[in-house]
Each structure stands twice: as C-alpha cells, then as structure tokens.
C-alpha cells in the first residue's frame, strides 16, 4: 500500500547542510495502523511531509499503490498537530469539512453533503456543524480536522502528532476515536507521535526512529489484544513490557554516536 524506500532529506542552503533524514525504509500494508515514534527533533514531521508529497526528498522514494508520490495525492489526507491553524477560521465547521471535497469534481453536491454529514457524525460533531472552529475547544477542533480527513475518503491517513497539544483526558478520548474510526473504515493509518504510551496503545506496529539524522531504529509488533481499553490495556503487563522495550530503543537511539556521512 505505502512503501517508503531509502528516504533521505537534506536541508540545504547558505553553505550549511543539515541532514534531517538519513535512510528510511518501511512498508505499510493495506488497513494497517502503524505508529512512528522517535525523540523530539528527529525529523518526524519532515518524514511525514515527504510521505504526504508536501516536501520533495533529496533521494529515495515514496510509493502509494506502487506509483511514486511526487505531490499531494487524493488518496492521502493529513491531520496536522496545530489544529487551530489548520482549520479555516472564516468557514463554519461544515464548510471546513466540505472544502477539500469541492476539489473532487466527480462528487455531486448531494454526495458531498452526505460525506460531510457522515464524517461529522463519526466524530460526534453533528451538533457543531454550524459553529466556527474558534468557538470550539481544542479537542473538538481536532475532531473537525479528523472529520475533514475522513470525508476526503483517503486510502492512507497521515497523522502528525495530532494530540500533542490537547489535555490528557481529551487525548485519551481522541485516541479511542482513532481506533474506532480505523476499525470501522479500514483505512491505512500512519500515526506519528513522540509519546511512547500513545504509540503502543494505538498501533499494530511501532516503528522507532533514531535521533537525527534519522534511520529506523527498531520495529515492534504490538501483541496486545485487538480490543483496547484506556484502563485495561494500559494496566496490562504486556503493555508495560512493550513500552519499556520502545523506551529502551529510544534511549539507545538518543545516545547513538552519529556516524559520519
């Protein structure tokens, strides 16, 4: 479904080059939920932007259904961390969700409205359809951004630390929402986070990234039961094992002496 091959990104300019991503290779199977976790500043956002086609990699390639991604594609939607800046403040919630659909010329008006209603219902925001984003709480704004992505009907949903800026309880609710939507809709999700617990709780697989310049440090299959619960799953002894494993990998990654290029 999604193939990332030998991805490398060097930010250049003014005689100073910064190698953000060194060599990243991984694959997402259709319908998989994979979490990417890494130390802060390890180039997670750079990676996600390259995958989304928003940033051109220096070398390597991203393949969606076997064809190279060279720019934003209708098959992918991104949910950004800064929800308050990624929603259009001059549009009501409903119009925010509908806007990307207007680009899909094949969709009729009725179909568009049906998709919008369906997406808003899926995130529990039907009642707020007529509100402006800035009238909503942070958690609700991020739900709007998720609804917008859902309505777009992507094959792959890319989420860039989407819950880093909301409080802990809201965050737990949003995590369960992502699990629920993933199970209902069978999308492929690439979820980037710096939070180890979140990665372990959400994912079927967790890819641990090294410090920058970034490589894939470790890959871990999450062997928790399919049905997850904020209290039970997190209290599970296996959960503790898994998070300890990821944590150790991240610590090892952080202290890894940077090899010279």
């Amino acid at each position: 479904m999604l193939d990332v091959r030998g991805l490398r990104k060097i930010y250049g300019g003014h005689g100073r080059e910064v190698e953000a991503l060194r060599d990243l290779t991984f694959t997402l199977d259709p319908g998989e939920l994979v979490c990417l976790v890494g130390p802060s500043g390890c180039g997670k956002t750079t990676l996600l932007k390259c995958v989304a086609g928003l940033l051109a990699p220096t070398s390597g390639e991203v393949l969606l259904d076997g064809s190279p991604v060279t720019g934003p594609r209708p098959g992918m939607a991104v949910v950004f961390q800064e929800y308050s800046r990624s929603l259009f403040p001059w549009m009501r919630v409903r119009d925010n969700v509908e806007l990307p659909l207007r680009q899909k010329k094949s969709l009729g008006r009725q179909r568009r409205h049906a998709l919008v209603e369906d997406a808003l219902e899926a995130v529990g925001l039907t009642a707020s359809a007529g509100a402006y984003p800035w009238q909503l709480s942070g958690g609700m704004q991020q739900r709007v951004a998720i609804a917008r992505a859902l309505a777009y009907e992507p094959e792959v949903l890319l989420m860039d630390e989407p819950f880093a800026a909301v409080d802990a309880q809201t965050r737990a609710g949003l995590e369960d929402l992502v699990r629920k939507l993933w199970q209902e809709r069978g999308m492929t999700i690439l979820f980037v986070t710096h939070d180890i617990d979140e990665a372990v709780y959400l994912g079927q697989r967790v890819l641990t990234l090294s410090a920058s310049p970034t490589v894939v440090q470790d890959e871990l299959k999450i062997t928790l039961p399919h049905e997850r619960d904020q209290l039970e799953s997190r209290a599970d002894a296996r959960f503790a094992e898994l998070r300890t494993h990821v944590y150790a990998q991240i610590r090892a990654a952080g202290t890894r002496p940077a090899p010279t290029a």
Binding site: A77, S86, R102
Partner: peptide, 29 residues
C-alpha cells in the same frame, strides 16, 4: 498567510482560483 493553513490547502489539492478565493483572499481580508 499562515504556513500550516497553506500546507493544509496544498495537501488537499486546493490550488489555483479555489486557493485564491478560499484561502488567500479571506486570510488577507
């Protein structure tokens, strides 16, 4: 125009006239 907003528009393929009408002009209003 906010960078995140511009990137959001780009990721959803909002370009050209649509971008002008729904992103640039309202943001600069």
């Amino acid at each position: 125009v906010d960078g995140v907003l511009a990137e959001t528009a780009r990721s959803y393929g909002i370009t050209g006239v649509s971008r002008l009408r729904r992103l640039v002009l309202p943001a600069a209003a």
